[in-house]
Design a protein around this nucleic acid. Structure first.
Length: 950
RNA sequence: GGCCCGGUAGGCAAAUUGGCAAAGCCGCCGCACUCAAAAUGCGGUGUCUGUGGGUUCGAGUCCCACCCGGGCUACCA
């Protein structure tokens, strides 16, 4: 609220010249940061290569901890950003004190739209602004004292990194998915199989009879990265196409919230759908929050069911259904407006049986269907959403034959069936499907129940389980079978008749991988005179971005659906047209003017931390094996701990799993998953204040009163949300360093609550963490003289008990990443020490070591003043002596009818019987019983007795 | 509409997973220090777990219904 700074910036009090103040903290912190950097304290040795330390033994136990790396946006950090970085740092430091070889570093995700926007705003090249932003961020984060191995940092825009991003792209390009073996294989092996005849050539021709161009066309169709002309998400407002994952449910761009339109465009795609099953199944092998696993499963959307073919006058109409057991209840069919068979299904005149409601008031099926399709095409995704679920549609004029009973059922066109899912056509079973029920009611279509609803069911469509009814023909009867058995039975029957087969459908689509932007990785391919892509040879990587006169993308009014993307790279003809010798002499080629999406760089960065300077290989196999390889049978391997926000649940985390699996298939990595354990941290949110006009006012100048809030005397209302410039409620780490010091800031962020919860920032509460560190300091260093004041005498038993109980609790809390309760326990111990005349050295040292992961600078300083020359970062974390964990006596609670009536001091080893007698003998118990008989006595020795009166 | 979290003193939170509710931090009150204030220290302060029912000797914890807040998803056949 009206946060006049808490005064910690004032000079030390005269009577306490050696007090731990923000200023003192700042000096200590920067001194230790310099020393850590100078000594390479956090360098983690590799088993081999340039980062190995020959002659020293590599610790068997390793711990690879990672943050979701930052995007250096230029807007600067606020106090919410470092939360995850502090948490990984605390945990990494803790593991290091347990003896692990800890790998922790931080790189920068630096390609992408925001950098481009920022560059446009400031009129500078994105590389310049991006590098400046990274420098600023490095400075702000260094001041936090993060225990990073600085040899392993990089940015995704570094040419040495881009080279490998492009190399991986080419690996994917040069691969195909072998469905029989269930893995990616080099494309050369596919060609050999075509050549030898081991694999039939699509189209039936012999490989030898095909022209070079034809062969390449066939091979290109198998690649995991392929160029395809298909409907894509075109966003005129951003001037680029987007992946499905980047489009929100209401058809707008996730970034910028612009409308998105479907356009047929020639674009790079990645065959992620080949990995759909493994991406779902391997979720069971990794330690991720259920929420994220569920989101990925839903996004991939695996449905098992059957494809069933109905005959029509226009040929076979194939549908996908998850409920083939309800086939006898199919009373009509629906195809999507975009379905290719619609024209053929539309005859010249309405058949005799046509009901008025089906025609939409049109004289001929052609008119009706044409009008409906035009209407559907004109609707944007947004409109289709906002118009609710009122079913619309029109009869095509054709009938289809239900393969199970020969029934002629009408075929409708309706936009509640989507071309992009299944086959774009459905059999409608109103008895067991709510959407079909609504449509049937609207269009006066028959409804047949084929599953017996449960007793008391009074709804419409019954989607639950139950015995099949009305489901028999001359050859098969499903009647009486449950849903699962009925499905199996009918699928077998359909397969025997050739009318369908069991199948699996996915919601996941292939990943649209090109963007019409400047600030991204160029594609390492060129096109020849046949317009077929050719990989750039390895020695020419990386393909670097050319200088362009104008890197601003061509954008359009957000709703200009009919525009075309115009990539900035297309404006540099001298770069696009290039002469290269790719093996058959110098020839002219055309470069790809698209760039890769922002996700490319984050798809493999975990590997670069391992071997950041390698120019020969993606990653040294021995190094990858050590840090990420599986450690037991069935272990998928991967980063030991990955902390980040939940917002990447289906974007970055799905894409990077896909790339990692391709690299695994091709033998470049031994781990099958990139991230073994994932943890989602919560967000730090903040209050914001709006005045009467609805304008945000600076939150730090708002004054709190008993009955509300005012800004410059005017009342304002409080809101709660993200921290940021637009809400005028930003608090920066730099302010925290200045007013409290980095250690206090770290303690505060870790003590606010459990890591996975979002919580409100409250600057005025930060002082509590400073006071704690001041009290720790004062228990060890005199504020008057600056001398160390701990005593050599051994601690008394009570203090030792407090110490070892604290150690025990802190270890448990640290393991579970409950840093907030670990801090609370240390505060308790410290408060106990405050009451002693002299703090025993053994206790002081243990406390300093326990505090070190959370407040490393003050701990190093105190450790050093306590006489240790070496840094404490590899000192063993204190261990609790079990002898001090058991009390001499425990307090036993004695209840009568569940209410506490007495307390007894008893030995912890007391027997049930003895305790029962003691409890019944209690005066308070007898008084409370008041003569009532005792029905039973529940004894939980040694802590509780409950006397239950009769 | 569906699914998933969460609701504990004025605020943030803890509770060994069914056993003394409220550790710790902020705030608030008082005192000390001070000419005064800030800072700091010391002491004090908080009535019962969103609501209603159930299971149990015993429920913040388990079950059911409802209310409130947040997230994800939304014609996926």
């Amino acid at each position: 609220m009206s946060q006049m700074q808490t005064g910690t910036t004032t000079p030390p009090a005269d009577d306490a010249p050696y007090r731990y103040t923000a200023e003192v903290a700042g000096q200590i912190e920067q001194r230790w940061q310099d020393r850590w950097e100078h000594e390479g304290t956090f360098d983690a040795p590799n088993p081999s290569g340039p980062l190995a330390e020959p002659g020293t033994e590599l610790p068997e136990r390793k711990f690879f901890v990672m943050d979701m790396f930052p995007y250096p946006s230029g807007r600067g950090l606020h106090v919410g950003h470092p939360l995850g970085y502090i948490a990984t740092d605390v945990f990494g430091r803790y593991r290091r004190m347990l003896g692990d070889n800890v790998l922790h570093a931080l790189a920068y995700d630096a390609f992408g739209l925001p950098a481009e926007h920022y560059a446009v705003q400031t009129g500078q090249h994105p590389r310049k602004t991006t590098e400046e932003n990274i420098a600023t961020m490095r400075r702000q984060l260094r001041r936090l004292g993060l225990a990073h191995d600085n040899r392993r940092t990089f940015a995704t825009i570094d040419p040495g990194y881009v080279r490998w991003t492009q190399w991986i792209f080419l690996q994917i390009f040069e691969s195909w998915y072998d469905d029989e073996q269930g893995r990616a294989r080099p494309i050369a092996e596919l060609v050999s199989e075509f050549e030898s005849g081991a694999r039939p050539v699509p189209g039936g021709a012999s490989w030898a009879s095909l022209s070079d161009v034809e062969r390449r066309g066939i091979v290109d169709d198998h690649r995991l990265a392929y160029v395809s002309e298909s409907p894509v998400n075109w966003c005129p407002g951003l001037g680029t196409v987007l992946a499905n994952e980047e489009v929100t449910a209401d058809g707008r761009s996730e970034r910028g919230n612009f409308p998105v339109f479907k356009r047929n465009l020639r674009q790079w795609m990645m065959r992620i759908t080949s990995y759909a099953d493994r991406l779902i199944d391997d979720l069971d092998r990794i330690d991720w929050p259920d929420k994220v696993k569920t989101m990925q499963r839903n996004w991939i959307g695996r449905s098992t069911g059957a494809n069933v073919r109905f005959t029509t006058e226009a040929g076979e109409l194939e549908v996908f259904t998850t409920r083939p057991d309800t086939l006898f209840g199919a009373t009509f069919m629906v195809v999507a407006p975009e379905h290719p068979l619609v024209d053929a299904l539309t005859p010249a005149a309405w058949p005799a049986a046509t009901k008025d409601a089906w025609t939409g008031g049109h004289a001929t099926p052609h008119d009706a269907v044409a009008a409906y399709r035009a209407q559907a095409a004109a609707k944007t995704e947004v409109e289709r959403q906002t118009e609710g679920r009122d079913k619309t549609g029109v009869f095509t004029g054709s009938f289809a034959v239900n393969p199970v009973n020969g029934a002629h059922i009408p075929v409708f066109v309706a936009d509640y069936v989507l071309m992009g899912y299944g086959t774009g056509a459905i059999m409608a079973v109103p008895g067991q499907d709510e959407r079909d029920w609504e449509f049937a009611e609207r269009f006066d279509l028959p409804i047949i129940r084929t599953v017996q609803p449960s007793d008391g069911f009074d709804g419409e469509a019954f989607t639950g389980d139950g015995p099949a009814i009305n489901s028999a023909n001359d050859e098969i009867s499903l009647d009486g079978l449950g849903v699962t058995e009925a499905k199996a039975a009918i699928i077998a029957w359909l397969e025997s008749k050739g009318a369908g087969e069991g199948t699996v459908t996915y919601r996941l689509r292939d990943w649209l991988f090109s963007r019409q932007r400047y600030w991204g990785e160029p594609f390492p391919v060129v096109y020849d005179e046949n317009d077929q892509p050719i990989a750039i040879p390895d020695h020419l990587l990386p393909v670097e971005l050319p200088e362009v006169p104008d890197y601003t993308p061509r954008t359009y009014p957000p709703d200009a659906a009919d525009t075309m993307p115009e990539p900035p790279l297309a404006r540099v003809p001298e770069w696009v047209d290039v002469e290269l010798d790719l093996g058959d002499g110098p020839k002219r080629y055309r470069r790809d003017t698209n760039t890769m999406p922002n996700w490319a760089g984050s798809c493999w960065y975990e590997l670069r931390y391992l071997d950041p300077t390698n120019t020969e290989r993606l990653v040294d196999p021995e190094v990858e094996q050590y840090w990420m390889g599986p450690r037991a049978d069935g272990d998928a391997g991967g980063v030991d701990l990955y902390i980040g926000g939940v917002e990447h649940a289906v974007l970055h985390l799905l894409y990077s799993r896909f790339w990692h699996k391709v690299l695994f298939d091709l033998g470049h990595v031994s781990s099958e998953e990139p991230f073994h354990k994932l943890f989602n941290q919560g967000y730090i949110q903040a209050y914001a204040y709006v005045d009467a006009r609805g304008v945000y006012v600076p939150a730090d100048q708002v004054v709190e009163h008993d009955d509300g809030y005012t800004f410059q005397g005017e009342p304002v209302t409080r809101e709660y949300g993200k921290m940021g410039k637009s809400l005028k409620n930003m608090v920066t780490p730099d302010e925290m360093y200045r007013d409290y010091g980095a250690d206090t800031f770290r303690v505060y962020e870790m003590s606010m609550g459990p890591l996975d919860l979002s919580r409100p920032w409250e600057t005025r509460a930060v002082v509590g963490s400073l006071r704690f560190l001041q009290r720790v300091w004062r228990n060890i260093v005199s504020e008057q003289s600056g001398e160390v004041v701990v005593g050599a005498a051994p601690a008394d038993t009570k203090t030792l008990r407090a110490l070892h109980r604290t150690i025990d609790a802190v270890r448990t809390d640290m393991e579970a990443m409950r840093f907030n309760t670990a801090i609370a326990r240390m505060i308790e111990l410290n408060n106990h020490l405050t009451k002693l005349d002299t703090v025993p050295r053994e206790v002081a040292e243990a406390l300093v070591l326990m505090l070190a992961p959370i407040a490393p600078h003050i701990s190093e300083e105190l450790w050093s003043r306590l006489g240790h020359a070496e840094s404490l970062v590899r000192e063993p974390f204190p261990s609790a002596d079990p002898a001090y964990l058991v009390d001499e006596t425990v307090t036993c609670v004695v209840q009568v009818a569940g209410k506490v009536r007495d307390r007894l001091e008893v030995p912890p080893s007391i027997a049930d019987d003895e305790l029962r007698e003691l409890a019944l003998a209690s005066e308070a118990v007898q008084r409370s019983l008041d003569g009532r008989p005792v029905r039973t006595v529940v004894v939980r020795a040694p802590k509780l007795v409950n006397v239950v009166p009769g």
